[in-house]
Every structure is written in C-alpha cells, then in structure tokens.
Measured scan of single mutants.
Amino acid sequence: NKFNKELQWATWEILNLPNLNEEQVKAFIDSLKDDPSQSANLLAEAKKLNDAQA
C-alpha cells in the first residue's frame, strides 16, 4: 500500500543521512513506525536537522 512504500522510502532516506547521530535516527524511525502517515513530514524534519548539523 501507499503508506508502506512511503514508510520504506523515508526509513531508507533517514538511515542514510550522514549528520544524524544514532539516537536521532532511532527517534525518527520510531516516530515513523508510530505514525506512517507522517512519513513525508518526518523525512523533511530529519533532512532539516541533518542540514543544520552539517
């Protein structure tokens, strides 16, 4: 289903952001699991944090 694909993509993207630490990655992944419908928003937040920590 649509959410599953978005969830998988967002998870992969977050796991490959170079500037997030392990705790941050885990928090984002946990949030994705809690509410897959928010995957696009969570991914945007993760990318923002990644850029801020570059």
Rank of each mutant, 00 (worst) to 15 (best):
F28Q: 00
Q53P: 03
L49M: 08
W9Y: 12
W9G: 03
L32K: 00
W9I: 10
K47S: 06
E22V: 11
F28N: 00
L20F: 01
K33F: 15
N16H: 13
F3Q: 15
L32E: 00
L20W: 00
A27N: 09
N21M: 11
L20P: 00
E23K: 10
W9D: 04
L17S: 02
E13I: 14
E23I: 10
N1K: 05
S39M: 15
I29V: 10
N16Q: 10
L32P: 00
A44E: 05
Q8F: 08
L20E: 00
A54D: 13
N4F: 12
A10D: 02
Q38L: 06
E22S: 12
W9E: 11
N19W: 13
P36V: 06
A10T: 09
E6Y: 14
A54R: 05
S37R: 08
L43K: 02
L49S: 02
N50V: 01
P36M: 06
S31K: 13
L15F: 08
P18S: 09
Q8H: 04
L42K: 06
D51L: 13
D34S: 13
F28S: 01
N41W: 15
N4P: 07
A52L: 14
Q8W: 12
K48W: 07
E22D: 13
K48H: 08
E45A: 14
A10R: 03
P36I: 12
Q53M: 08
L20I: 04
E23Y: 13
L49H: 03
P18A: 09
A52S: 11
Q38W: 04
W9H: 10
P36T: 04
W12Y: 08
K5T: 09
A10P: 01
L42F: 09
P36N: 03
I14H: 01
E22Y: 11
K33V: 10
D34W: 12
A10Q: 03
N16L: 06
D51S: 09
I14W: 01
K33P: 02
Q24M: 04
W12F: 07
P36G: 03
E6G: 04
E23L: 12
K2V: 14
F3N: 13
I14Y: 02
L7R: 02
P36F: 08
P36D: 02
A27E: 08
E45R: 15
N50T: 01
K2H: 15
Q8R: 08
L43D: 00
L7I: 12
D35R: 08
N19K: 03
I29S: 03
K26M: 12
P18R: 13
L15A: 05
N16V: 05
N50Y: 01
F28A: 02
N21S: 13
A46R: 00
T11E: 04
Q24G: 01
K5H: 09
W12I: 03
A27K: 09
S39V: 15
N4I: 12
E23G: 09
S39K: 06
L7D: 04
L17Q: 04
L7A: 10
A27W: 15
L17H: 02
I29Q: 03
D30Q: 15
Q53R: 04
A54S: 09
K5W: 07
L17P: 00
K47P: 00
N50S: 10
A27Q: 08
L42M: 06
V25D: 00
E13A: 12
F28K: 01
N50Q: 02
Q38V: 05
Q24H: 03
N4A: 07
K26R: 13
Q53V: 06
F28M: 04
A46P: 00
N1Q: 05
A54L: 09
K48S: 10
A44S: 11
D34L: 14
E22T: 11
A54N: 07
A27F: 14
L32V: 05
L15G: 05
K2N: 15
E45P: 00
N4T: 10
K48R: 11
V25G: 02
K48Q: 08
A10I: 11
N21L: 11
A10W: 07
Q38G: 07
L15R: 08
A54K: 06
A44T: 11
W12D: 05
K33A: 10
K5A: 10
N41D: 08
F28V: 02
N16G: 07
T11Y: 06
K26F: 09
D35K: 07
P18K: 12
N41A: 13
Q53G: 05
E13F: 14
K48Y: 07
W12M: 06
N1W: 00
K47L: 09
D34R: 13
L17V: 00
N21D: 08
N4Q: 13
L20A: 00
E45F: 13
N50R: 01
L42E: 01
N4H: 13
E6A: 07
N21A: 09
P36L: 08
A46H: 00
D34A: 13
K33D: 05
K48N: 08
N41P: 06
D51P: 01
N1A: 02
N50H: 02
A44F: 11
P18T: 10
L15P: 02
A52K: 10
D30T: 14
L43T: 04
I14D: 01
I14S: 01
L15Q: 12
D30G: 15
E13K: 14
E22H: 14
K2D: 15
N50M: 01
Q8V: 08
S37A: 12
N41H: 12
Q24F: 02
N16Y: 04
L17F: 05
L32M: 13
N19D: 05
K2E: 15
N50W: 01
T11K: 06
V25H: 05
P18G: 07
L49D: 02
N16M: 12
E23H: 11
A52T: 10
D30W: 15
L49I: 08
L17M: 14
Q24A: 02
N41L: 12
N19Y: 12
W9Q: 14
A40S: 11
Q8S: 05
P36E: 03
D34P: 02
N21Q: 07
E13G: 05
K5R: 04
K47V: 07
N4V: 06
F3D: 14
E22M: 09
E13N: 08
A27M: 13
K47Q: 08
W9R: 10
L49Y: 04
I14V: 05
K33Y: 15
L7T: 06
K33G: 07
N16P: 00
K26W: 13
N1D: 15
E23A: 13
N19V: 01
L32A: 04
S39W: 15
N19F: 12
N1P: 14
L17K: 01
P36Y: 04
I29H: 03
Q24K: 01
E23F: 14
N4L: 12
L15I: 07
E6F: 15
L49K: 04
L17R: 00
F3R: 10
W12T: 05
E45T: 11
W12L: 05
L43V: 14
E45S: 11
K48I: 10
Q38M: 09
P36S: 04
K26H: 10
N4D: 15
F3K: 09
K33N: 15
K47N: 06
Q38Y: 04
A40H: 08
A46N: 00
W12K: 04
L43G: 01
D34Q: 13
N21K: 11
K48D: 05
N19E: 03
L20K: 00
I14R: 00
D35H: 08
L15S: 08
I14P: 01
N50K: 01
K2R: 09
E23W: 15
F28P: 00
K47G: 04
